[in-house]
Design a protein around this nucleic acid. Structure first.
Ligand code: FES
Ligand code: FES
Lengths: 155, 155
DNA sequence: GCCATATAGGACCGAAGCGGTCCTCTTTAA
DNA sequence: TTAAAGAGGACCGCTTCGGTCCTATATGGC
Protein backbone atom coordinates (compact mmCIF):
# COMPACT_ATOMS: atom_id res chain seq x y z
CA UNK A 1 0.00 0.00 0.00
CA UNK A 2 2.65 2.51 -0.92
CA UNK A 3 4.43 1.65 2.28
CA UNK A 4 7.98 0.76 3.13
CA UNK A 5 8.62 -2.59 4.76
CA UNK A 6 9.02 -3.02 8.48
CA UNK A 7 12.61 -4.03 7.89
CA UNK A 8 13.35 -0.74 6.18
CA UNK A 9 11.63 1.13 8.97
CA UNK A 10 13.72 -0.66 11.55
CA UNK A 11 16.78 -0.05 9.43
CA UNK A 12 16.44 3.69 9.55
CA UNK A 13 15.95 3.55 13.30
CA UNK A 14 19.10 1.52 13.75
CA UNK A 15 21.09 3.72 11.41
CA UNK A 16 19.99 6.95 13.06
CA UNK A 17 21.12 5.50 16.37
CA UNK A 18 24.50 4.79 14.83
CA UNK A 19 24.62 8.20 13.17
CA UNK A 20 24.53 9.93 16.52
CA UNK A 21 28.06 8.62 17.13
CA UNK A 22 29.49 7.87 13.71
CA UNK A 23 32.93 6.96 15.01
CA UNK A 24 31.69 4.41 17.51
CA UNK A 25 31.58 0.68 16.85
CA UNK A 26 28.31 -0.84 18.01
CA UNK A 27 27.64 -4.50 18.55
CA UNK A 28 24.33 -5.74 17.19
CA UNK A 29 23.18 -6.51 20.72
CA UNK A 30 23.89 -3.01 21.92
CA UNK A 31 21.99 -1.48 19.01
CA UNK A 32 19.06 -3.71 19.81
CA UNK A 33 19.15 -2.46 23.38
CA UNK A 34 19.38 1.19 22.40
CA UNK A 35 16.58 1.02 19.88
CA UNK A 36 14.35 -1.42 21.70
CA UNK A 37 14.09 -3.56 18.62
CA UNK A 38 14.31 -7.37 18.68
CA UNK A 39 17.93 -8.47 18.56
CA UNK A 40 17.63 -11.08 15.78
CA UNK A 41 16.01 -8.57 13.49
CA UNK A 42 18.66 -5.97 14.18
CA UNK A 43 21.32 -8.53 13.40
CA UNK A 44 19.65 -9.48 10.16
CA UNK A 45 19.30 -5.87 9.12
CA UNK A 46 22.94 -5.11 9.81
CA UNK A 47 24.06 -8.05 7.73
CA UNK A 48 22.06 -6.76 4.77
CA UNK A 49 23.35 -3.24 5.23
CA UNK A 50 26.86 -4.65 5.33
CA UNK A 51 26.49 -6.36 1.97
CA UNK A 52 25.14 -3.12 0.52
CA UNK A 53 28.10 -1.16 1.77
CA UNK A 54 26.17 1.08 4.13
CA UNK A 55 27.91 -0.18 7.25
CA UNK A 56 31.28 -1.82 7.80
CA UNK A 57 31.94 -4.58 10.29
CA UNK A 58 34.66 -5.71 12.65
CA UNK A 59 34.55 -9.38 13.46
CA UNK A 60 35.65 -11.15 16.59
CA UNK A 61 35.60 -10.04 20.18
CA UNK A 62 34.92 -6.35 20.67
CA UNK A 63 33.73 -6.30 17.10
CA UNK A 64 30.64 -4.66 15.75
CA UNK A 65 29.33 -2.29 13.11
CA UNK A 66 30.15 1.24 12.04
CA UNK A 67 28.73 3.54 9.38
CA UNK A 68 30.64 3.18 6.13
CA UNK A 69 30.29 6.87 5.32
CA UNK A 70 29.39 10.05 7.10
CA UNK A 71 25.70 10.44 8.01
CA UNK A 72 25.40 13.24 5.46
CA UNK A 73 26.35 10.80 2.72
CA UNK A 74 23.75 8.18 3.55
CA UNK A 75 20.33 8.95 2.15
CA UNK A 76 17.05 7.25 2.86
CA UNK A 77 16.81 6.06 -0.72
CA UNK A 78 20.00 4.08 -0.20
CA UNK A 79 18.56 2.49 2.91
CA UNK A 80 15.30 1.60 1.22
CA UNK A 81 17.07 0.24 -1.81
CA UNK A 82 19.23 -1.93 0.39
CA UNK A 83 16.44 -3.37 2.52
CA UNK A 84 13.45 -3.34 0.16
CA UNK A 85 15.10 -3.83 -3.20
CA UNK A 86 14.78 -1.41 -6.09
CA UNK A 87 11.84 0.82 -5.42
CA UNK A 88 9.21 2.10 -7.77
CA UNK A 89 5.72 3.35 -7.13
CA UNK A 90 4.34 1.00 -9.76
CA UNK A 91 5.55 -2.30 -11.07
CA UNK A 92 5.96 -0.72 -14.48
CA UNK A 93 8.14 2.09 -13.21
CA UNK A 94 10.36 -0.29 -11.28
CA UNK A 95 11.00 -2.65 -14.15
CA UNK A 96 10.52 -0.82 -17.43
CA UNK A 97 10.22 -2.80 -20.62
CA UNK A 98 8.39 -5.75 -19.14
CA UNK A 99 4.87 -4.51 -19.64
CA UNK A 100 3.35 -5.03 -23.06
CA UNK A 101 0.86 -2.24 -22.59
CA UNK A 102 3.58 0.39 -22.35
CA UNK A 103 3.03 1.73 -25.83
CA UNK A 104 -0.57 2.78 -25.38
CA UNK A 105 -0.75 3.15 -21.61
CA UNK A 106 -1.62 6.68 -20.60
CA UNK A 107 -0.93 6.18 -16.92
CA UNK A 108 2.67 5.10 -17.17
CA UNK A 109 4.18 8.50 -17.79
CA UNK A 110 2.31 10.00 -14.87
CA UNK A 111 3.29 7.30 -12.44
CA UNK A 112 6.81 7.74 -13.60
CA UNK A 113 6.64 11.43 -12.80
CA UNK A 114 5.31 10.75 -9.32
CA UNK A 115 8.00 8.16 -8.88
CA UNK A 116 10.69 10.65 -9.80
CA UNK A 117 9.45 13.13 -7.24
CA UNK A 118 9.39 10.52 -4.51
CA UNK A 119 12.85 9.27 -5.39
CA UNK A 120 14.32 12.75 -5.37
CA UNK A 121 12.74 13.46 -2.01
CA UNK A 122 14.17 10.30 -0.51
CA UNK A 123 17.50 11.05 -2.10
CA UNK A 124 17.79 14.35 -0.30
CA UNK A 125 16.80 13.17 3.16
CA UNK A 126 20.01 11.96 4.77
CA UNK A 127 20.83 10.45 8.12
CA UNK A 128 22.31 13.80 9.05
CA UNK A 129 18.92 15.42 8.68
CA UNK A 130 17.27 12.59 10.57
CA UNK A 131 19.37 13.24 13.68
CA UNK A 132 19.07 16.99 13.40
CA UNK A 133 17.30 18.24 16.52
CA UNK A 134 14.28 20.43 16.03
CA UNK A 135 11.23 19.92 13.90
CA UNK A 136 11.97 18.80 10.34
CA UNK A 137 11.38 21.51 7.77
CA UNK A 138 10.01 20.91 4.32
CA UNK A 139 12.63 23.27 2.94
CA UNK A 140 15.21 20.51 2.94
CA UNK A 141 13.26 19.09 0.00
CA UNK A 142 13.69 22.21 -2.10
CA UNK A 143 16.84 20.88 -3.82
CA UNK A 144 14.94 17.65 -4.46
CA UNK A 145 12.22 19.58 -6.20
CA UNK A 146 14.71 21.40 -8.37
CA UNK A 147 16.49 18.15 -9.19
CA UNK A 148 13.24 16.53 -10.28
CA UNK A 149 12.46 19.50 -12.51
CA UNK A 150 15.82 19.53 -14.19
CA UNK A 151 15.63 15.78 -14.71
CA UNK A 152 12.38 16.37 -16.54
CA UNK A 153 13.54 18.67 -19.31
CA UNK A 154 16.69 16.83 -20.37
CA UNK A 155 15.42 13.45 -21.65
CA UNK B 1 8.55 -1.77 -1.29
CA UNK B 2 6.95 1.63 -1.50
CA UNK B 3 4.76 0.34 -4.28
CA UNK B 4 1.06 0.48 -4.97
CA UNK B 5 -0.78 -2.79 -5.37
CA UNK B 6 -1.55 -4.33 -8.72
CA UNK B 7 -5.22 -3.75 -8.04
CA UNK B 8 -4.66 -0.04 -7.63
CA UNK B 9 -2.59 0.04 -10.79
CA UNK B 10 -5.33 -1.71 -12.72
CA UNK B 11 -7.85 0.62 -11.12
CA UNK B 12 -6.24 3.73 -12.53
CA UNK B 13 -6.08 2.14 -15.95
CA UNK B 14 -9.77 1.30 -15.87
CA UNK B 15 -10.70 4.73 -14.57
CA UNK B 16 -8.67 6.58 -17.17
CA UNK B 17 -10.44 4.56 -19.83
CA UNK B 18 -13.74 5.67 -18.35
CA UNK B 19 -12.57 9.24 -18.00
CA UNK B 20 -12.10 9.58 -21.73
CA UNK B 21 -15.88 9.45 -22.07
CA UNK B 22 -17.28 10.50 -18.71
CA UNK B 23 -20.89 10.43 -19.84
CA UNK B 24 -20.77 6.92 -21.20
CA UNK B 25 -21.91 3.87 -19.29
CA UNK B 26 -19.47 1.00 -19.64
CA UNK B 27 -20.14 -2.60 -18.84
CA UNK B 28 -17.40 -4.37 -16.93
CA UNK B 29 -16.84 -6.69 -19.88
CA UNK B 30 -16.35 -3.80 -22.24
CA UNK B 31 -13.86 -2.12 -19.95
CA UNK B 32 -11.94 -5.36 -19.73
CA UNK B 33 -11.82 -5.48 -23.50
CA UNK B 34 -10.71 -1.89 -23.87
CA UNK B 35 -7.97 -2.13 -21.28
CA UNK B 36 -6.87 -5.67 -22.00
CA UNK B 37 -7.18 -6.56 -18.33
CA UNK B 38 -8.74 -9.83 -17.09
CA UNK B 39 -12.47 -9.46 -16.83
CA UNK B 40 -12.93 -10.88 -13.31
CA UNK B 41 -10.37 -8.45 -11.94
CA UNK B 42 -11.99 -5.51 -13.65
CA UNK B 43 -15.33 -6.54 -12.21
CA UNK B 44 -13.87 -6.82 -8.73
CA UNK B 45 -12.22 -3.43 -9.00
CA UNK B 46 -15.40 -1.74 -10.14
CA UNK B 47 -17.32 -3.19 -7.23
CA UNK B 48 -14.83 -1.75 -4.80
CA UNK B 49 -14.83 1.61 -6.53
CA UNK B 50 -18.61 1.57 -6.38
CA UNK B 51 -18.64 1.11 -2.61
CA UNK B 52 -16.16 3.95 -2.27
CA UNK B 53 -18.33 6.26 -4.31
CA UNK B 54 -15.90 6.74 -7.16
CA UNK B 55 -18.15 5.19 -9.76
CA UNK B 56 -21.91 4.75 -9.92
CA UNK B 57 -23.65 1.71 -11.35
CA UNK B 58 -26.74 0.91 -13.33
CA UNK B 59 -28.02 -2.58 -12.80
CA UNK B 60 -29.86 -4.82 -15.17
CA UNK B 61 -29.58 -5.20 -18.91
CA UNK B 62 -27.68 -2.41 -20.65
CA UNK B 63 -26.37 -1.50 -17.25
CA UNK B 64 -22.81 -0.70 -16.35
CA UNK B 65 -20.61 1.82 -14.60
CA UNK B 66 -20.06 5.54 -14.88
CA UNK B 67 -17.77 7.95 -13.09
CA UNK B 68 -19.47 9.43 -10.05
CA UNK B 69 -17.82 12.81 -10.56
CA UNK B 70 -16.01 14.65 -13.27
CA UNK B 71 -12.47 13.39 -14.03
CA UNK B 72 -11.05 16.60 -12.59
CA UNK B 73 -12.60 15.76 -9.23
CA UNK B 74 -11.14 12.27 -8.94
CA UNK B 75 -7.58 12.24 -7.68
CA UNK B 76 -5.15 9.37 -7.56
CA UNK B 77 -5.11 9.50 -3.78
CA UNK B 78 -8.81 8.69 -3.77
CA UNK B 79 -8.22 5.74 -6.04
CA UNK B 80 -5.37 4.41 -3.94
CA UNK B 81 -7.29 4.88 -0.74
CA UNK B 82 -10.21 2.98 -2.18
CA UNK B 83 -8.23 0.03 -3.50
CA UNK B 84 -5.28 -0.17 -1.13
CA UNK B 85 -6.75 1.13 2.09
CA UNK B 86 -5.45 4.14 3.98
CA UNK B 87 -1.98 4.87 2.75
CA UNK B 88 1.08 5.92 4.65
CA UNK B 89 4.74 5.59 3.85
CA UNK B 90 5.39 3.96 7.21
CA UNK B 91 3.17 1.97 9.50
CA UNK B 92 3.56 4.68 12.13
CA UNK B 93 2.41 7.43 9.81
CA UNK B 94 -0.60 5.45 8.68
CA UNK B 95 -1.84 4.64 12.16
CA UNK B 96 -0.54 7.22 14.61
CA UNK B 97 -0.75 6.48 18.31
CA UNK B 98 -0.15 2.76 18.05
CA UNK B 99 3.62 2.82 18.34
CA UNK B 100 5.06 3.05 21.82
CA UNK B 101 8.34 4.46 20.57
CA UNK B 102 6.70 7.59 19.24
CA UNK B 103 7.89 9.80 22.08
CA UNK B 104 11.59 9.31 21.52
CA UNK B 105 11.64 8.26 17.89
CA UNK B 106 13.60 10.67 15.78
CA UNK B 107 12.56 9.18 12.48
CA UNK B 108 8.83 9.57 12.85
CA UNK B 109 8.62 13.26 12.14
CA UNK B 110 10.72 12.91 9.02
CA UNK B 111 8.71 10.05 7.62
CA UNK B 112 5.63 12.04 8.32
CA UNK B 113 7.01 14.93 6.31
CA UNK B 114 7.81 12.67 3.38
CA UNK B 115 4.37 11.17 3.69
CA UNK B 116 2.76 14.58 3.50
CA UNK B 117 4.62 15.43 0.33
CA UNK B 118 3.61 12.19 -1.31
CA UNK B 119 -0.01 12.57 -0.26
CA UNK B 120 -0.19 16.10 -1.60
CA UNK B 121 1.33 15.03 -4.88
CA UNK B 122 -1.19 12.23 -5.27
CA UNK B 123 -3.96 14.57 -4.25
CA UNK B 124 -3.20 16.92 -7.12
CA UNK B 125 -2.90 14.34 -9.87
CA UNK B 126 -6.43 13.85 -11.15
CA UNK B 127 -7.92 11.66 -13.82
CA UNK B 128 -8.22 14.76 -15.94
CA UNK B 129 -4.47 15.13 -15.95
CA UNK B 130 -4.02 11.45 -16.63
CA UNK B 131 -5.96 11.65 -19.89
CA UNK B 132 -4.39 14.92 -20.92
CA UNK B 133 -2.51 14.33 -24.17
CA UNK B 134 1.11 15.36 -24.27
CA UNK B 135 3.93 14.61 -21.92
CA UNK B 136 3.07 15.12 -18.24
CA UNK B 137 4.71 18.18 -16.75
CA UNK B 138 6.01 18.38 -13.22
CA UNK B 139 4.46 21.82 -12.92
CA UNK B 140 1.10 20.28 -12.12
CA UNK B 141 2.62 19.41 -8.76
CA UNK B 142 3.42 23.00 -7.90
CA UNK B 143 0.12 23.51 -6.02
CA UNK B 144 0.84 20.27 -4.18
CA UNK B 145 4.16 21.63 -3.04
CA UNK B 146 2.56 24.83 -1.81
CA UNK B 147 -0.14 22.88 -0.02
CA UNK B 148 2.42 20.74 1.75
CA UNK B 149 4.29 23.85 2.86
CA UNK B 150 1.25 25.58 4.22
CA UNK B 151 0.21 22.42 6.03
CA UNK B 152 3.56 22.47 7.72
CA UNK B 153 3.41 25.86 9.41
CA UNK B 154 -0.11 25.67 10.80
CA UNK B 155 0.03 22.75 13.26
C1' DG C 1 46.81 -22.34 22.97
C1' DC C 2 42.18 -21.75 24.69
C1' DC C 3 38.04 -19.50 25.33
C1' DA C 4 34.61 -15.95 25.18
C1' DT C 5 32.69 -12.81 22.07
C1' DA C 6 30.81 -11.30 18.00
C1' DT C 7 29.94 -11.32 13.05
C1' DA C 8 28.62 -14.18 8.41
C1' DG C 9 25.62 -16.66 6.10
C1' DG C 10 21.86 -19.09 5.34
C1' DA C 11 18.09 -22.38 6.42
C1' DC C 12 13.71 -22.55 8.07
C1' DC C 13 8.86 -21.76 9.34
C1' DG C 14 4.39 -19.67 10.29
C1' DA C 15 1.36 -15.92 9.32
C1' DA C 16 -0.56 -12.74 6.49
C1' DG C 17 -1.58 -10.55 2.29
C1' DC C 18 -2.80 -10.66 -2.28
C1' DG C 19 -4.19 -11.82 -6.81
C1' DG C 20 -7.36 -14.35 -9.13
C1' DT C 21 -11.49 -17.17 -9.97
C1' DC C 22 -16.06 -18.57 -9.39
C1' DC C 23 -20.80 -18.98 -7.65
C1' DT C 24 -25.32 -17.29 -6.36
C1' DC C 25 -28.64 -13.62 -5.93
C1' DT C 26 -30.86 -9.35 -7.57
C1' DT C 27 -32.18 -5.98 -10.90
C1' DT C 28 -33.82 -4.29 -15.29
C1' DA C 29 -34.48 -3.69 -20.37
C1' DA C 30 -36.35 -5.88 -24.26
C1' DT D 1 -40.36 -14.38 -19.71
C1' DT D 2 -35.74 -14.16 -20.65
C1' DA D 3 -31.23 -12.49 -21.24
C1' DA D 4 -27.96 -9.22 -19.67
C1' DA D 5 -25.50 -7.19 -16.26
C1' DG D 6 -24.22 -5.79 -11.54
C1' DA D 7 -23.77 -7.14 -6.08
C1' DG D 8 -21.71 -9.56 -2.84
C1' DG D 9 -18.99 -12.73 -1.05
C1' DA D 10 -16.64 -17.28 -0.62
C1' DC D 11 -12.71 -19.53 -1.78
C1' DC D 12 -7.96 -20.98 -2.85
C1' DG D 13 -3.17 -21.07 -4.16
C1' DC D 14 0.74 -18.50 -4.29
C1' DT D 15 4.02 -15.37 -2.77
C1' DT D 16 6.06 -12.47 0.46
C1' DC D 17 7.51 -11.14 4.73
C1' DG D 18 8.72 -11.06 9.47
C1' DG D 19 10.99 -13.60 12.73
C1' DT D 20 13.92 -17.23 14.75
C1' DC D 21 17.69 -20.24 14.98
C1' DC D 22 21.86 -22.85 13.82
C1' DT D 23 26.55 -23.43 12.27
C1' DA D 24 30.86 -21.62 10.73
C1' DT D 25 34.42 -18.13 11.12
C1' DA D 26 37.23 -14.50 12.94
C1' DT D 27 39.49 -12.03 16.77
C1' DG D 28 40.85 -10.11 21.22
C1' DG D 29 42.11 -11.30 25.98
C1' DC D 30 43.91 -14.56 29.21
S1 FES E 1 0.32 -0.97 -17.31
FE1 FES E 1 2.42 -1.37 -17.84
S2 FES E 1 2.97 0.51 -18.71
FE2 FES E 1 0.92 0.97 -18.04
S1 FES F 1 8.98 3.49 15.25
FE1 FES F 1 6.92 4.04 15.73
S2 FES F 1 7.09 6.21 15.88
FE2 FES F 1 9.11 5.66 15.24
Amino acid sequence: MLRISKLADYGTIVLTAMAREPAWTFSAAELALRTGLPAPSVSKILKILLRQGIVVSLRGANGGYRLARSPAEISTVQILNALDGPLGVTECSASPGLCKREAHCGTRAHWHMINRVVLQALEHITLQQMIDPGRPRLDVLRPAWRAARSAEVSP
